[in-house]
């Protein structure tokens, strides 16, 4: 049975178990967010996707990413109060991640030209906003190499015991989901260095382009019981090989 609610006075239907953010996005209503990824578990860390929710007599400012839709709910995504609180949280994040383009852009949009706050005392990974998208992606892919470490104002992201971890295969997924691109990744022709560890790259057997790390390929072969020659070709060459095969069956 569908749930009926209103977002910015627009009547909307949703399914039980859905959250405000996904329903709004489906309707083309944009709500800014830094820590949300549709394929990963919800965390509600950045506190940017704030909306005003009226449910019966109860009215509150809350995050759209982790609030379940309910029958009769009225959501306002762009009130002055909502914008004010978003701006304050972005001002806090701007002090933590002054060089992150995504933070800067959102902050500027909300009128936060500069932060009145000092950089946090503990900030070992510059520009990291502690949203844990990297940790969630790493766990989701089955590696579980990255951890949220410590708590409170000493929370940080890192590898267990602060040293290279066997579990890390150098896939770089952490960086690809990172909203502030704060994770350091360096590549040479043959190697990739990330989280203090250097990985050999697999090169495409037909064109020579880097495909993935050796460790990443070994992990895939081991966990998915794939043939030993799996993934020794890059996506582009795979596609062209496939189209050639297709061409050969066309009569």
């Amino acid at each position: 049975m569908s749930i009926r609610l209103w977002i910015d006075d627009r009547e909307v239907l949703a399914e039980p178990g859905e959250r405000i953010l996904e329903v709004a996005q489906r309707q083309g209503i944009s709500i800014p967010t830094l820590c949300h990824h549709p394929a990963l578990p919800v965390l509600g860390a950045c506190r940017v996707c704030l909306v005003e929710v009226q449910q019966g007599k109860r009215r509150e400012i809350t995050t759209a990413c982790n609030t379940l839709v309910q029958e009769g709910m009225r959501v306002a995504t762009d009130t002055a109060e909502v914008r004010g609180h978003r701006a304050m949280n972005l001002e806090l994040l701007r002090a933590r991640a002054p060089e992150a383009p995504a933070v800067r852009e959102l902050a500027t949009q909300l009128g936060v030209a500069r932060s009145r706050f000092r950089p946090p005392a503990q900030n070992p990974l510059p520009n990291c906003i502690l949203c844990e998208l990297c940790v969630r992606a790493c766990a989701h892919l089955g590696h579980h190499a990255l951890a949220a470490v410590g708590r409170g104002d000493k929370k940080r992201i890192g590898l267990p015991h602060n040293r290279p971890a066997e579990a890390c295969v150098g896939c770089g997924s952490c960086l690809s989901v990172c909203p502030t691109r704060c994770i350091l990744l360096k590549e040479t022709a043959t190697t990739r260095t990330i989280w203090g560890q250097t990985f050999e790259l697999v090169r495409c057997k037909s064109c020579g382009a880097p495909v993935m790390t050796e460790a990443q390929r070994a992990h895939a072969i081991r966990t998915k019981q794939l043939p030993e020659d799996h993934d020794d070709t890059c996506e582009l060459c795979k596609q062209s090989a496939a189209s050639q095969r297709l061409a050969s069956v066309v009569w």
């Binding site: 965390l43 509600g44 860390a45 950045c46 506190r47 940017v48 304050m88 949280n89 806090l92 994040l93 002090a95 933590r96 706050f117 000092r118 946090p120 005392a121 906003i129 502690l130 949220a148 410590g150 708590r151 409170g152 104002d153 000493k154 929370k155």
Partner: peptide, 16 residues
């Protein structure tokens, strides 16, 4: 010190 460190508003907000 006791904040879990999840929310920007609580973690960074209380520090500031």
């Amino acid at each position: 010190f006791e904040s879990c460190g999840n929310c920007t508003s609580c973690r960074d907000g209380l520090e500031q």
